[in-house]
Each structure stands twice: as structure tokens, then as C-alpha cells.
Amino acid sequence: MPDAADADGLTVGQVSTRLGVTVRALHHWDEIGLARPSLRTAAGYRLYTAGDLERLHRIVVYREIGLGLDEIRAILDDSTADVPGALRAQRTQVAERIGRLRRLSAGLDRMIDAHERGLLLTAEQQAAIFGPRWNLDWPAQARRRYGDTTQWRQYAERSASRGPQEWQAIADAITGLERALGDAMDAGVTPGSPEANQLVERHREIFASYFPLTRQMQVCLGRMFEADPGFAAHYNGIRTGLATWFRRIIDASARAHGIDPDTATWQ
């Protein structure tokens, strides 16, 4: 509470320091008639009395709990104002803001975890969704290898909003694509044919679940699928020679879009 013993004759600057409000705010409250100083010096400077300071203190209290200036004016000047009702309404708004902030905090936690871990699933969930051949170390390895890239950031942003059901849908889509690739190779589908190009486009669409994939980037992935022992073993485990066939249909599709697979880069 303000000390009335020395309050009479306080300047705007002194009141600003005492109450922790800006001089600009005090001038504004004066201009709108919310809190006018009762005294003036001979030179016309504002001076606040103990009563003025008491009113200002009450304004500051109500401002700190989020009431608007019009609401504060009604509480201070209208004897019929429903003060408890106004405060209850403000409490409701505060509770709603707290709820929004808690949800924001939870979202930030998930985003941080996604950037650091990549996959926000338990070991049990990963095994159930991706199958027994899934290696729990793969997300951490990907983070170490690609964590400073734009694609990792895009992947993390998508991962933060996904739960087990969304990941299951992606896993099912990949399984379906790999089955279709194997069947197409068995059926003698040739690179550059409409059927092969459709599979390449399907791959790009599914891969967009992780991050946007350009045709040049897809060519680079095709090379990796064939050359990397882990990826090659995976695709060749579906059908013997599938890794090379998959790379060839990606290259043929790229050529049809004016891209030279031999010079394509990750861009």
C-alpha cells in the first residue's frame, strides 16, 4: 500500500518509480480521466496526493490481473459495478490462457524431443509398427548423420505432431509400395514405362511424409538404395535385384523430366 505520510506533492517521475509504471502510462491515464493528479505546481507540473496514489495503486493491482481500463474505471467509479463478477470473468479468462500455455509448453516439449530424437515412439511401439527387423538405434544414427540438415528439421516438425496411428499408416504405405515394386519387377515392368513412373511418383508422395523430396533428391536416394549395404540388403531381400531395378526406374523417370541422373545432386 502507498505510504500517505509523504505522498502529497509527488511528481510524475516519483510516482512512476514508486509504483513501477511508466511515465507514459501515467500521462495516458490522466488524459482519459482514469487517474488525474489533484495538484499542480505554479508552473503547471502535475503533483499527486496520497488519495491519488491510493487510486493509482488500485489501478495497478487490477491491471496486473488483466482487467482493461474501462473495467477498472467501472470498478473504481461505479458503485453498482459487480466487482466479484468481473473478477470471476477474469479468472475464467486466466484459466483459459493457462490451458493454452500448458498446451503450448507440451507442444514445445514434443518439438524439442522430435529434433533431438526424431521418432517419438516407445521401443514397444516402434517394434509393433515397423516390425521385428527394425533397429532401435536407427533414429539416433539418422540424427547424428543428418541432424544439421534442413531435411532433418522438416522431418522433426512432422514427427512432433504424429502418434502411433499416423506412423502405422506411413509404415503400411511403405510396405504396400515395396510389395508393388517387387510385383512390378517380377511382371517385367520396364524403366520409363507408365507403370514404372507411377511407382516412382508413389514413392515420392510417401516419402513426403518425412520431408519434401525433389526429383534430384530422389535420384540420390536411388543411388543409395543400390550402393548402401543396408538398404541394398533390404530391397534385395524383397526381390533379388530389386535395389538396382528401383534405382533404374527412378533414373528413367528423372530423365523424362529433364534431369541427368549422372549429375543429379541433393537439391
Rank of each mutant, 00 (worst) to 15 (best):
G66Y: 01
G66S: 08
S161I: 13
Q141M: 12
I112W: 11
T92Q: 14
L119W: 03
R117L: 09
P132M: 06
F130S: 00
L108D: 09
T80P: 00
R110S: 14
A86D: 09
G66P: 02
Q90A: 07
A95W: 06
A127T: 14
T149D: 03
M111D: 15
E71V: 10
S161H: 14
L101Y: 08
E71I: 08
R100V: 10
V94T: 15
L121E: 04
D82C: 10
D70P: 02
R100E: 13
R97P: 01
A160D: 05
L136M: 06
T122D: 07
A74N: 05
A106M: 09
V83H: 04
I98F: 00
T150H: 12
Q154V: 06
G107D: 15
E124F: 07
D78F: 11
G147R: 03
D113C: 04
R88H: 15
L108C: 12
D70W: 02
T80L: 10
R153G: 13
P164I: 02
S161F: 14
W134K: 03
Y62N: 01
A140R: 09
M111G: 09
E64P: 05
I75G: 06
T122W: 01
G131A: 01
W152F: 11
L67T: 01
A89I: 03
G66A: 08
W152M: 08
I72W: 01
P139S: 05
R88C: 07
R91H: 13
L76D: 02
Q90L: 05
R97D: 07
T80Q: 11
R103P: 00
G163R: 12
G163Q: 08
